[in-house]
């Protein structure tokens, strides 16, 4: 699992990757009441605003950590957006990508590096 400085994660197996927000991000946002997901088949470029996670207080853009085509979205979040609070880095995933440039992940932080990074932003 790799992380961005904006608190998204991406977990890749081959050229298929799952994207969501980090455990830290869900804690910071608090109760999540709505998630807007990208359209299936959409082509995203790394850094594009791909989804929106809305807490009680505010809407936050989720930027895709890598480029690719959206091949799945987490339909369970429509009826149960709090899944992101319960398990952000598991059942609360947002969308899956067919990566067009898997090398983009090399520039992202691994879990220990992200943990170090969090110490600097708190």
């Amino acid at each position: 699992m790799r992380f961005t400085r904006d608190h998204e994660y991406i977990e890749a197996g081959g050229d298929l990757a799952t994207v969501g927000i980090s455990e830290h991000a869900q804690q910071q946002l608090g109760d999540i009441v709505y998630v807007e997901l990208p359209a299936l088949g959409a082509t995203l470029k790394k850094g594009d605003a791909a989804a929106v996670v809305e807490s009680v207080k505010a809407a936050s853009d989720v930027f895709t950590p890598a480029s690719g085509e959206v091949v799945a979205v987490n339909d369970k979040l429509g009826g149960n957006p709090s899944l992101v609070n319960e398990n952000a880095q598991g059942d609360g995933w947002l969308f899956k990508l067919k990566l067009s440039a898997p090398g983009e992940l090399d520039g992202l932080m691994d879990a220990p590096a992200y943990a170090e990074y969090l110490k600097t932003v708190e």
């Binding site: 904006d6 608190h7 927000i21 910071q28 809407a59 936050s60 853009d61 989720v62 930027f63």
Partner: peptide, 8 residues
């Protein structure tokens, strides 16, 4: 993602 509360 952005919009997380920042300390001041």
């Amino acid at each position: 993602m952005k919009g997380i509360w920042a300390p001041m």
